[in-house]
C-alpha cells in the first residue's frame, strides 16, 4: 500500500469517527446555547441510543423500527431528567449545574451497568455486504450510513433552526433570554426541547455507530469528551463550527494514530486542542474577544 492510499484510508476512517463526534458536538452546542449548561451526560445519551438498539434488535424488531423506537426512548428518558433534575435546580450556579450533569451521567452509567452488564454487544450492520473500495482504501458499508445519517440530520437541524417558527424561538432564547421571555417564549419549555432534541441527535449517533464498534455501558465517557472537544474547537456556540470541529478532530486523531503512535492518539487530539485554544482562545468559529460586563 502506498502512502497516498494510507492517507486516504486514515482520512476516511477519521471522517467516520468525526461524523459521530460532530453529532455529539452539535448536541452539546444546542444545550449550551439554549440553557448555558455544559452537559457532561451527553456521552451517556449516545450510549443509551446504542444500548436500546442492542436490546430492540435483540428481541427481533426490524432495524428501522428499532432505530425509531430507540431514539424515542432516549428522548423520553432525557425529557424526564430535564423535568426532574435540571428544572428543579433553578438556584444552582453554573458549576453546580455541571456537577448535576456529572451526577446524572453517573446514574445513567450505573443503570446501564445494571441492565446490560459489562459485556460488549455487537449490532448487525444496517446493510449486508463486503467492503467497498474507494481509490486504494476500503470501507465497510456501515460507514456510508454514518456519513449519510450525519449529513441528513445536520441538514435537518439547520433547516429546523433557520426556517421554522420553533427554531426562531430557540434562537431568540440564545440571543437574549429575557427579551425572549417578554415576547412570550418560555425559556423553560425551550430548555426542555433543547434537551430532547439534543438527546435525539446523540442517540442517533450511538445507533449508527454501534455496528462499527462494540456497544458497552461505558462507551459514553470518551465519546462525550470528544464531542465536548469538538464543540469547543468550533467555538461552543456555532453549529457549523461544531460539525467542522468534529470532522477535524476525527481526521487528526486518525492520522495521528496511523503515523505517530496509536497509544498517543488521544494525546495528539488534546495537544492540538490546547494549541488551538492558545492561538485562538474563542475556538475556530467563536466570537472571541469582547465580553459584556
Amino acid at each position: 500500500m502506498s502512502l497516498a492510499n494510507d492517507i486516504l484510508q486514515y482520512v476516511l476512517g477519521g471522517l467516520t469517527m468525526g461524523g459521530i463526534y460532530a453529532l455529539v458536538a452539535v448536541g452539546f452546542v444546542i444545550i449550551h446555547n439554549v440553557t448555558g449548561i455544559i452537559n457532561f451526560a451527553q456521552g451517556e445519551f449516545v450510549m443509551m441510543g446504542a444500548m436500546f438498539m442492542v436490546t430492540l434488535t435483540g428481541i427481533g424488531l426490524p432495524a428501522p423500527a428499532a432505530i425509531i423506537l430507540s431514539v424515542i426512548l432516549v428522548m423520553v428518558v432525557v425529557g424526564l431528567i430535564e423535568v426532574g433534575a435540571i428544572r428543579s435546580a433553578k438556584r444552582a450556579s453554573p458549576v453546580s449545574l455541571v456537577i448535576i450533569t456529572i451526577g446524572i451521567s453517573t446514574v445513567l452509567r450505573g443503570m446501564a451497568l445494571l441492565i446490560w452488564g459489562t459485556n460488549p454487544y455487537k449490532v448487525a450492520p444496517f446493510t449486508e455486504g463486503g467492503p467497498i473500495h474507494i481509490g486504494g482504501a476500503s470501507i465497510v458499508p456501515q460507514v456510508l450510513w454514518v456519513i449519510g445519517t450525519t449529513a441528513f440530520v445536520l441538514a435537518l437541524t439547520f433547516f429546523l433552526f433557520e426556517y421554522t417558527y420553533f427554531g426562531k424561538a430557540l434562537r431568540a432564547c440564545v440571543v437574549n433570554k429575557y427579551a425572549a421571555q417578554l415576547m412570550g417564549i418560555s425559556p423553560g419549555k425551550m430548555s426542555f426541547f433543547a434537551f430532547i432534541f439534543s438527546a435525539a441527535l446523540s442517540a442517533l449517533a450511538g445507533i449508527v455507530f454501534a455496528p462499527i464498534t462494540f456497544a458497552t455501558y461505558d462507551m459514553g465517557l470518551m465519546l462525550g469528551l470528544k464531542g465536548f472537544v469538538a464543540a469547543v474547537l468550533g467555538g461552543l456556540s456555532s453549529t457549523p463550527g461544531a460539525v467542522f470541529g468534529g470532522l477535524a478532530l476525527g481526521v487528526i486523531e486518525s492520522l495521528g494514530a496511523g503515523f505517530v503512535s496509536s497509544g498517543y492518539k488521544d494525546g495528539i487530539a488534546f495537544v492540538i486542542l490546547l494549541l488551538v485554544l492558545f492561538l485562538k482562545p474563542g475556538g475556530l468559529f467563536g466570537t472571541s474577544g469582547s465580553k459584556r460586563v
Binding site: 433534575a85 428543579s88 435546580a89 438556584r91 444552582a92 450556579s93 453546580s96 449545574l97 456537577i99 448535576i100 456529572i102 451526577g103 446524572i104 451521567s105 453517573t106 446514574v107 445513567l108 452509567r109 450505573g110 443503570m111 451497568l113 445494571l114
Partner: peptide, 22 residues
C-alpha cells in the same frame, strides 16, 4: 453488585446539588 452503589451515589450527588447548591 457495585452497580447499585454507582446509581445511589449519582442520585445523592444530584439531590445535594439541587437542594444545597452552595
Amino acid at each position: 453488585g457495585g452497580e447499585y452503589e454507582i446509581v445511589v451515589y449519582g442520585t445523592i450527588l444530584v439531590v445535594i446539588m439541587i437542594f444545597l447548591p452552595e
